[in-house]
């Protein structure tokens, strides 16, 4: 009797184990697919050069905010040097603004401070501001985004 009973329970155990395994595998893959449906694909960044203006159009000592295809950019000119920074604070994604008097970029969210070269000098930001490449072709200034 005991042996038969043993076999039966083992058979039961195995069949329910297979059932559980199969179900969790099936449902698992289904839900992974659902998750993939919700996760957007990363868009490939297209790089292009955009004319932002004549050299003399860009005011000296000030920062000009621009938005080019979703990139929020600050173009800073000091004398004959032009640099372009991403406005997105490297801390938590707020937008920095240019403080002309102190020649610094300030993020209002956590008082992060960057110097005029975009280097993080105070507050929580972990790295310097992202930069965009500036190309000068004659008098015209282009930005690579």
């Amino acid at each position: 009797m005991g042996v038969i009973h043993d076999n039966l329970s083992r058979r039961k155990f195995l069949s329910s184990a297979f059932m559980t395994l199969g179900l969790s595998f099936g449902l698992g893959t289904l839900f992974i697919r659902f998750g993939q449906f919700l996760t957007p694909e990363k868009k490939e960044k297209r790089i292009g050069e955009v004319l932002i203006g004549n050299f003399t159009d860009i005011p000296d000592g000030a920062a000009t905010p621009l938005e080019i295809s979703g990139n929020k950019i600050l173009v800073v000119r000091s004398k004959d040097r032009i640099t372009a920074f991403s406005r997105i604070c490297t801390d938590l994604g707020c937008l920095v603004s240019w403080d002309a008097a102190r020649e610094q970029f300030i993020c209002p969210c956590h008082q992060g401070v960057y110097d005029k070269n975009g280097k993080n000098i105070a507050g929580p930001p972990p790295r310097p501001l992202d930069r965009f490449e500036i190309l000068a072709k004659g008098e015209n200034v282009y930005i690579r985004v």
Partner: peptide, 25 residues
């Protein structure tokens, strides 16, 4: 913006969580 960025900085799950919450980058 700040809270979704904070979620994105969590170790391991952060990046996926950010994409899921924002539906894009």
């Amino acid at each position: 913006v700040v809270v979704t960025n904070m979620a994105g900085e969590l170790p391991v799950v952060g990046k996926t969580l950010l994409l899921l919450l924002r539906g894009g980058e």
